[in-house]
Simulated assay, not measured.
Amino acid sequence: MLLAPAASTCERAAVDAIAADWARVTADRLGDERYAGDPFGAVAAVARRPGRITAETGWIEVELALADTDLAVRRAGLDLDPGWLGWLGAVVRYRYV
């Protein structure tokens, strides 16, 4: 349970702006016309791929089936290992098996 106060209106607006920018960049990188008017649809398409996420302190691993490789995501570089993410306090790694 999170024992912190709810986000303020200003904080929610800031997060919404970051999310909208991230979605737009994701849609642009995919280069798929389907997402031109729906950048959040691009994020949903990338995030809904089947896989398994395991996490422990300081380490997050995303495991995806090699047979389910999405070439558009690969070409866009959206599944490159970002490595250590200081803001997250963890290493993030993608594996295709």
Rank of each mutant, 00 (worst) to 15 (best):
P39E: 03
E63R: 15
Y35T: 03
Y35L: 02
G41E: 08
D38V: 09
G37I: 00
D68K: 01
V62S: 01
V43C: 08
E56N: 13
L64E: 06
G31N: 04
I53Y: 04
E61L: 15
F40D: 13
R48H: 08
T57P: 10
I60K: 08
A47W: 07
W59D: 15
G31T: 10
R34L: 13
A65Y: 00
P50T: 06
D32P: 01
D32W: 03
A44F: 14
V62T: 05
A45E: 07
A42N: 03
V43S: 03
A42S: 04
L66R: 14
V62G: 00
T57E: 13
E33L: 08
F40Y: 11
D38G: 03
I53A: 13
Y35A: 02
F40A: 12
Y35G: 01
A47M: 09
A45H: 07
T57D: 11
V46G: 01
P39K: 09
W59R: 15
E56T: 15
A67N: 05
R48V: 01
I53S: 10
G41V: 11
G31M: 06
D68V: 01
A36W: 02
A65C: 10
A45D: 09
I53L: 15
P39V: 09
A42H: 02
A42M: 02
F40C: 07
Y35N: 04
A65R: 13
T69H: 04
R34H: 12
A36V: 12
E56K: 14
Y35W: 14
D68P: 00
T57M: 11
E61R: 15
V43N: 00
T69E: 10
V62C: 07
R52L: 12
R49D: 08
G41M: 09
D68N: 07
E61I: 11
A67L: 08
A47H: 03
I53W: 10
R48I: 00
A45Q: 04
T54K: 08
A36Y: 03
R48M: 10
I53T: 15
E61Q: 14
R52W: 00
